[in-house]
Amino acid sequence: MSQGADPRSPAHEDSPSAGAMPTRVMVEARAIVKRFGSNTILDGVSLAATSGSVTAIIGASGSGKSTFLRCVNLLIRPDAGELFLDGQRIDTDRRERDLLRYRCEIGMVFQSYNLFPHMSALQNIIEAPMIVHRVSRAEAVERAMGLLDKVRLRHRAEAYPHQLSGGEQQRVAIARALAMRPRVMLFDEVTSALDPELKGEVLATMRDLAADGMTMIVVSHEMSFVRQVASEVLFMSGGRIIERGAPDSILDRPQSPELSAFVARIMD
């Protein structure tokens, strides 16, 4: 289970299309490589997230976690490797315009929220469905209000981002991503910019989402959240996955010196 340094992932053998319903692989990345100039940021990173699973990626900053997450939805194009969504191979060489359809199947929430500052919470949520899915305004608003309910912010629908707390902004950002009805959600250190008392509300929203069966890939430093919610934890270091496994085994019984050092650092 651990020592997944082999670029071919442990999930490599089960063909993504052959998976039976309960363990269907929703998103799979095989041997993703990314270089910036002469720096190799990702050196053969693989991941297979089954439907409804929560995969947590942990590691020190600079280990390639965020870059990998951006390769999964092709915000960054990998230099090598393959991507599959629900068994379908994604052609990563296609033009940006052709990648948009793939990308809206995969929701993403960012560390810095990235809400559109000139739009109210509601407008932030309805914008993409109206542009991309050509949903009518009435329909988009109805759905957005439902999502605001879900993130417990219905009463803040008309507020602009600057009028919202960080935790509220992040929950609106989650609702905005959900409005596209994604099949997978990516979370990139979404609580790192928040005060401790605001982290809780965002993590609670993410817990609800996991309980609803959303497939999630979460880059996070919130170890108690990772321990409670993640089905699998990947530990990255130097652009590779050094260890992978169940949260308790990864966090309590680290095998590699890198993970031991990382765990020791975050526990105090």
Binding site: L75, E96, R101, R103, A128
Partner: peptide, 22 residues
């Protein structure tokens, strides 16, 4: 902010719409 472009791309919004609306 660079994140604005990134958020628009992540939502699947085509560049012309992203420029005009966001």
């Amino acid at each position: 902010h660079r994140g604005q472009f990134e958020a628009a791309r992540a939502l699947g919004i085509p560049l012309p719409s992203a420029l005009r609306r966001i």
